Amino acid sequence: MKNINILVVDDEKEIRQLIAIYLKNEGFNVLEAEDGMTAIALLRINDISLVILDIMMPDKNGIETCVEIRQVSKVPIIFLSAKGEQVDKILGLTAGADDYVTKPFHPLELVARVKSQLRRYLQYETEIEIPNTIKIEELTIKVDSHQVFKGTLEIKLTPREFQILLLLAKQPGKVFSISQIYETIWEEPSIAADNTVMVHIRKLREKIENNSREPKWIKTVWGVGYKIDLKKVYFSC
């Protein structure tokens, strides 16, 4: 997880620095704030992916800061607090936090919680709302009706072939490994899945490509997987 900015908000400098050391060791970029006002200001001018927020701070406490953050951002918020009572956890989560860590805490546990929250958040943020029509040059994919047209001619695909084509087309430029394709489409572990995926890709190419031996749409990235060129894809309602 590179180039990810994490904001650490705590009025105790030593705690901020300790957390920063462990996060930087994992490759994260760390911004620090000693109070809620500074945290809000940093959040507004930086691309922050997660906030670690102490509850007990002077002036603007963590609960108030959390509520204000939620007015401008959906980033994950992990509360830190010396209080361990259930009512405090409920209060923090109700204010909009995603997780709660009680002081004293083990830094590696906090890092693990950070990674868990980031996986969910970044996956959600990168999900693409797919419109009804995806065009790959003269190839047209009708998402709702599960139809594919080459020019005006409808191409009959099996459900698996259509799912593979849609998977690649809705994230053009991204290279999908054979394991990723198999686990996404078949929804089971990709044990010895190479031949299954390759056969489906070959049949799909035979149906949609002008020359399946020299495909121009479904490209092989040798040693990695398959992709559709970003420049060839257009989305419309």
Rank of each mutant, 00 (worst) to 15 (best):
I6H: 04
E154S: 13
K203I: 07
Y100P: 09
S145L: 03
E14L: 15
I228P: 02
R119T: 12
I185Y: 14
I4F: 00
Y22R: 02
K203A: 05
I6C: 03
L91A: 14
P76H: 02
M1Y: 13
I52F: 08
A41P: 07
L23V: 00
R213W: 03
Q86S: 11
K232R: 14
D10E: 05
L167D: 10
K150W: 12
G27N: 12
T220A: 15
I141Q: 02
I63C: 12
F176Q: 03
L110D: 07
V75A: 00
L50I: 08
K142N: 11
R202L: 01
K60F: 09
Y182P: 03
A20N: 02
C237Y: 13
E68N: 04
L168E: 07
E64M: 12
L108Y: 06
Y22W: 03
I15E: 00
W186Y: 15
I208R: 06
L204R: 11
L165E: 08
V9Q: 09
E183K: 07
F235Y: 14
E14F: 13
D229M: 07
Y124A: 13
R202H: 05
K74V: 01
L91R: 15
I55C: 11
A41S: 15
E209N: 09
E188D: 06
S145C: 01
T38K: 14
V87A: 14
D11W: 04
K150Y: 10
Q147H: 12
Q17I: 05
D47Q: 15
K170Q: 15
I63H: 07
I55L: 15
T152D: 13
I48E: 07
I164P: 10
F162G: 10
V148K: 05
A39T: 12
D144A: 14
K174L: 06
S116W: 09
R70T: 06
I181M: 12
I48T: 11
V101L: 05
E14S: 15
V101N: 07
L165I: 02
S81R: 11
M56S: 12
V51C: 06
S49E: 09
T65K: 00
K60S: 05
V148C: 12
E64D: 15
L50K: 07
A39C: 10
I130D: 00
L80M: 12
Y226D: 09
E125V: 07
S145T: 14
L110H: 03
P131I: 05
Y100K: 01
V175W: 07
S212R: 02
E125H: 09
I15A: 09
L42T: 01
I191C: 06
F149H: 06
Q171D: 13
P159N: 09
T140F: 01
D194H: 07
G151F: 01
L93Q: 03
A169Y: 06
S116E: 11
E109R: 00
S236P: 03
M57E: 04
K219D: 03
Q86C: 04
Y182T: 05
I55S: 10
N46Q: 14
K115G: 01
G223D: 11
